[in-house]
Simulated scan of single mutants.
Amino acid sequence: MAKAGERTVAVPENTVDRAYQHIRERTVRFGYRPGERINEVELAAFLGMSRAPVREALNRLIADGLVVMEPGRGFFCRRLSATEIAELYAVRADLEVSAVRRACAVADPDAVDAIAADWRASAERQADSTLDELVNADETFHIRLAGLAGNAERLRYLANINARIRFVRYINLEEPARRDASLGEHALILSAVRARDAEAAAALVAGHLSIRSQEILAHIHTGLARIYASDVA
């Protein structure tokens, strides 16, 4: 908030959006290490803009749960927490189970068929796909599946959760057995939605998204080992 006598300077929205997208991508992919301080001056210089849009973008990312601000110290990349990620997975499951139940009642059959066709095409390309492409395809499938229920606010929450758990998806989908299981589970979920079987679809989604705390902790340890690998002699 501006103090008395200060002139408020409007920051162009497209500049803030550009800063937001850049910093968000770096935090999601841990271009900043967990707990690393984010230097506003360096960021502004790199992006060719003033500090104002960078600071506004960082404040948005606090709301997203990707950045934290410590009074007197500045902005920092979020740390990894097994408890937080387990809670995010639980919320994600609640949202997606509710969505698939609703989708069974209201989904356009043509939209279901379009998702199925696109997913089959992704599955056929799996062997030649990069891990980035596999993760993006998985996220897209789940967002489109939830989108069949027609609730934009639900999708907004899911997009935020996806960003905060993405590194777990990366490590999960690196495992060939998990990738193969995921393909089969997606096909079963779509079949249940096509059949308007809400109970079966909900059970399949809940099972598909279940993850044990020990598994999350193992993924965090794996992720941290990779993030800090360059420091290992």
Score class of each variant (00 low, 15 high):
81 S>N: 04
68 V>N: 14
53 P>F: 00
54 V>H: 06
39 N>V: 10
77 C>R: 05
50 S>I: 14
32 Y>K: 09
72 G>C: 10
30 F>A: 15
75 F>G: 13
19 A>P: 10
62 I>R: 15
47 L>M: 06
21 Q>E: 09
19 A>Y: 01
47 L>W: 04
35 G>P: 10
51 R>G: 08
60 R>T: 15
16 V>L: 03
63 A>F: 10
78 R>Y: 13
33 R>D: 05
39 N>I: 10
61 L>D: 01
69 M>S: 11
28 V>G: 08
67 V>H: 04
76 F>M: 10
28 V>N: 07
83 T>S: 08
28 V>K: 03
38 I>V: 13
63 A>R: 15
54 V>R: 06
65 G>A: 08
83 T>A: 03
18 R>D: 02
21 Q>Y: 08
41 V>K: 12
35 G>M: 13
47 L>V: 03
47 L>E: 07
56 E>R: 03
14 N>D: 09
37 R>F: 05
16 V>A: 07
71 P>F: 02
64 D>Y: 14
65 G>S: 09
57 A>P: 01
76 F>K: 09
67 V>D: 01
43 L>G: 00
62 I>N: 12
16 V>D: 08
17 D>L: 00
44 A>G: 02
36 E>Y: 02
43 L>Q: 09
30 F>W: 04
61 L>H: 04
56 E>D: 06
31 G>E: 09
60 R>N: 15
